[in-house]
Nucleic acid binder design. Structure first.
Lengths: 204, 204
DNA sequence: AATTTAACTGGCCGGTTGGTCAAATTCAAA
DNA sequence: TTTGAATTTGACCAACCGGCCAGTTAAATT
C-alpha cells in the first residue's frame, strides 16, 4: 500500500514550511512537490492554514506521547535520571523531525499561529514544572523556579537545531553528524545535571 | 527636528517584520503605517529585502558595540563578572528592541536571510568563545566546550522573549513587568554562575 | 534667481497568491 | 452491473503582491 495523496501533501508541506516558512511556501509548490493537484489540498485540509494545523497537531501528539512516556510512565530510575532522559527524547525527536523545530521556532515568534503553538506547548511544560517542583523544593519559586529552568533548557536544546547555519560556522565539522550530536547530548546533560545537583543541594 | 521619512519607514518595517514576519508584511502596510508613499520604500531601500538588510545591519552594529563594550573594553571586574554582565547587556537590548529577537528567531530558522544573520552573529559568538577558552581551560573542548556553552546560553536568553505567548501562560503575571524581568535576569545569572563555577573548579 | 540634486508621489504593470467550482474519475457497496 | 459517495482534476477568478516609472515638489548649490 503506497502513501495516500493526503500523506504526500502533508510531507511536502512539512518540508516547505520547514525550509522556507509557512508564508513563503505556496500551495502550488506543495502540490507540485507532492505530485497532487492543488485543489486537492483544499479538499483534504480546507485551507493552507488547515494544512499547518494538521501538521502541528500530529507533531505535538507524537511529542507529547514521548515526553509523557519518558517522564511519567517509565517509573524506572530516579527523577533525576528521568529528567536527563528528556534530553535524549527531545534531541532524538528534533533529529527525526528536522522541520518541526524550524516551523515552531518560526511561527512561535509571532503571527497568526502563535496561540495554537502555545496551546500545544503549555501542557507539556506543565508536566515538567510539576515534576520539578514536587521533587526539588528549591524550584518552587525564585531564581531557580521550575518555569524559568524549563524555559531556559528548552531554549538551550532547540537553539542547536534552529541556528543551523550559525552552528556550522562555529563548529568545525558537520553539526548533525553522529559524533557532533553525541557531544551535544553530553553537553546538555552536563548542564542539566549540574543545575539539578545545584538545586538538589541545600547550600544557598 | 522630526523623524525623516526614511526613519519612519524603518520603524514601521521593524514593527511589522517583528509581529507578522518578513513574508507576511507587505510594502503597502509598511507605507501606510509609516505615512510614506509605497514607492519611497524602493527609493530609499531598493527593495523589501534591502529594508530588512538595513534593519539587521543597524541592530547588529548596536548590539556588537554593547557586547564588545561589556566583554572587552571595560576591563574593570573579573572575567567572571564581565560574563555575568553580558546577561544584563543582552536582556536589556532585547527589551529595548522587542522586535529584534522576533525577527532573528524567525529568519534564522531558515529561508532567504539565514546567511546574513549567521554572518552577523558569528563574530559576536567568536568573541565570547575566545574569552571563555582563554580563561577557563576546561571550555576548550568536550562537554563544556565554549561553543556549546554559548549556544545553550544564547538559546536560554532569547527563548524568554520569543516565546511570549507561551511564557504568559506559564507565568502568572506579565512576563515583561520589571519584577518579572528582574527575576529572569537573576535566574540567568544563577545559571551562568553555576556553570562557570563548575568549569572553573578542577573536580571532574 | 537659476540650476542642479535629492526627496517624494500617483498610477500602473506583470505575475502570483489562496481559493472555488463543475466536471471527470475512482472506488466500494448493493 | 448499477449506484452513490469519495477522490481527483483543469480551468478559472478576484485580490494582492513587489516593483517600476514619468513627473512633481522641495532643498541645496552656484
Amino acid at each position: 500500500m503506497g502513501k495516500t495523496a493526503k500523506e504526500k501533501i502533508l510531507e511536502a508541506a512539512d518540508e516547505l514550511f520547514g525550509t522556507v516558512g509557512f508564508d513563503a511556501a505556496t500551495t502550488r509548490e506543495i502540490a507540485e512537490k507532492s505530485g497532487a493537484n492543488k485543489a486537492l489540498i483544499h479538499y483534504h485540509f480546507q485551507s493552507k492554514q488547515g494544512l499547518l494545523t494538521e501538521l502541528l497537531d500530529r507533531y505535538y501528539r507524537k511529542l507529547g506521547e514521548k515526553i509523557e512516556g519518558a517522564l511519567i510512565l517509565e517509573d524506572k530510575g530516579s527523577t533525576r535520571d528521568r529528567l536527563l532522559g528528556l534530553v535524549d527524547v527531545y534531541v532524538d525527536f528534533l533529529i527525526e523531525n528536522r522541520n518541526f523545530g524550524r516551523i515552531v521556532q518560526r511561527e512561535a515568534a509571532g503571527g497568526a499561529h502563535v496561540e495554537r503553538i502555545a496551546g500545544h506547548m503549555a501542557p507539556l511544560f506543565s508536566i515538567g514544572i510539576q515534576t520539578l517542583k514536587s521533587v526539588y523544593p528549591r524550584t518552587q519559586a525564585g531564581e531557580a523556579a521550575a518555569e524559568h529552568l524549563l524555559i531556559s533548557f528548552y531554549g538551550a536544546i532547540i537553539s542547536y537545531f534552529t541556528y543551523g547555519e550559525l552552528i556550522s560556522r562555529l563548529l568545525d565539522d558537520d553539526p548533525m553528524s553522529q559524533a557532533a550530536i553525541d557531544l551535544r547530548k553530553r553537553h546538555l546533560k552536563w548542564i542539566a545535571s549540574t543545575l539539578i545537583d545545584s538545586v538538589g543541594s541545600n547550600d544557598s
